[in-house]
């Protein structure tokens, strides 16, 4: 009988978890800067950050491939530091996913930072608390819904990516063959059964995550507004 290979799922969940975790750190820093600083350059940064939303993933994938390969700027640097290739490796996929899903984290977080009343932050400052402590104890707890939105959207977006993954990662089992690529491969090799099973699981997984998001968002709204 037909055996289902779960490796692509593990890989996808691993990729999405690591990507989301990194994005959370990067997103908090970037969004904090964007929300509380007004420079002319911010407009340019925000436009750049939104690029992955409108660019065809293959365009992004193409440029990342060029940057990441052995001769590429980032690829060479990475090779020097870690003695490892970036393209066609899991790490490369992580870096590409972080870039690809960046707007999914930065947009909700920036909105979240802006929704926290300024005088809460000033109150914390006058109570002797540093920027960092204010961030952790006052700002972040009062934008839980935005953080959750960012996490869920980044995770889902990473799970769903294909174009970038296929360009930068190729299709290597256990390394870069994520579910979306596995579905494509299965269809290509006329293995519709596997494709069906993967696709259905992905469908319900996405639906349930979004359901949970909407549910929690409703529940947390009052605190975010206060």
């Amino acid at each position: 009988m037909h055996e289902i290979n779960w490796l692509p799922f593990w890989l996808t969940i691993k990729l999405a978890s690591i990507t989301t975790f990194l994005l959370l750190l990067i997103g908090i820093l970037l969004s904090y800067y964007l929300a509380y600083n007004r420079h002319k350059i911010n407009t340019i940064i925000e436009a750049l950050l939104s690029l992955p939303l409108v660019l065809p993933p293959t365009v992004l994938g193409f440029y990342l491939l060029i940057l990441f390969n052995k001769q590429g700027l980032i690829g060479t640097l990475w090779y020097k530091i870690f003695n490892k290739q970036l393209v066609f490796h899991f790490e490369g996929l992580v870096v590409a996913s972080v870039i690809y899903s960046l707007p999914m984290m930065v947009h909700p977080l920036t909105a979240g930072f802006r929704s926290v009343p300024k005088n809460l932050i000033e109150a914390s400052f006058t109570l002797g608390k540093s920027r960092l402590e204010t961030l952790i104890r006052v700002i972040l707890p009062n934008m839980k819904a935005s953080i959750l939105t960012g996490i869920v959207l980044s995770f889902a977006h990473t799970v769903g990516e294909f174009g970038v993954a296929v360009m930068v990662g190729g299709n290597i089992e256990g390394e870069t063959r994520v579910v979306s690529i596995a579905i494509y491969s299965a269809v290509e090799s006329m293995d519709y059964k596997t494709a069906h099973i993967y696709a259905l699981i992905l469908f319900f997984m996405s639906f349930l995550t979004l359901l949970a998001l909407y549910f929690l968002n409703k529940k947390w709204k009052p605190y975010d507004k206060a």
């Binding site: 005088n119 109150a123 006052v138």
Partner: peptide, 16 residues
């Protein structure tokens, strides 16, 4: 943070 004041805001600014 270094000025050592106690500030009471017009709209209280309590941490929700």
């Amino acid at each position: 943070q270094k000025r050592d004041v106690g500030f009471v805001f017009q709209d209280y600014a309590l941490f929700p």
